[in-house]
Design a protein around this nucleic acid. Sequence first.
DNA 1: TTTTTTGCAAACCATTTGCAATTAG
DNA 2: CTAATTGCAAATGGTTTGCAAAAAA
Lengths: 140, 140
Amino acid sequence: MTQRATRQLTAVYDVLRTSCDHPTAEQVFRRVRDTLPRVSLGTVYRNLDKLREQGRLRVVRLASGEAHYDAMVEAHDHFVCERCHAVHDLDRAPTPPAARRLRDDGCVVHWHTTALYGLCGGCAAEPGGGRPRARAGQAG
Amino acid sequence: MTQRATRQLTAVYDVLRTSCDHPTAEQVFRRVRDTLPRVSLGTVYRNLDKLREQGRLRVVRLASGEAHYDAMVEAHDHFVCERCHAVHDLDRAPTPPAARRLRDDGCVVHWHTTALYGLCGGCAAEPGGGRPRARAGQAG
DNA sequence: TTTTTTGCAAACCATTTGCAATTAG
DNA sequence: CTAATTGCAAATGGTTTGCAAAAAA
């Protein structure tokens, strides 16, 4: 046999399909536990990876480093608030001109992704609102 | 006093300025060790972070999860080979239309970055060359 | 001399993995 | 039945941190 439809796999996928906030594995774990209190974090990771292999979700790496999970719908980009760390979906940016140049040079371009960083409406409006609030880095 | 010009800080920055392959902290560490054999990995991390705070380098998060470091020059994008994991610099893609929409909604957009994934010329030409060779994910 | 920085080692945290027990097919 | 999957716990790997010794200013 192959791929079995376990309660855990279904629950992980359900959490993802009904989440619009790009949860981390830990967050998925907590939500799955509402339904299956005995589920383990390892199982959540294994199932997330299974879903990724099947192309049913996308792993999003943001500036902070931890993986965020996104039920695969259409290809799209992201806007990350550097203050509250919320992640918003954006329409996909057009294929950058560099892609054509790469192809001309014999490269194969499978996909591309863009991330925008800044302050969301709420945070931009906030009193002390102008600069990040925690965390590290930059992403590429 | 503030910021001291130590040999270690200088060496870390020199490695970065003369590297064009977006090394990880571990790789920077190995290269710095050629000059300062007693340097520690912790010191490399501390100095990388110091340089980042000063805006003298950028941290690039690729699909794999580890941080890659890039001496800050012009804003630019990246092409990552999914087979050999080489990272190439690209001219910066134009600001995506979504940025304007976000600004109209009261968001502040500080910066954006695009990453392209695929196969570099060498790997695309290779015999078994068509699909990844290791690693996980996706980046955003 | 005073304060920052280092080297080292232990701590951390996200993620992965080995294994015996469980469960879907 | 029997192969895939789970829960648990231990292992991993990248990164951070506490502290006494070393080195800038």
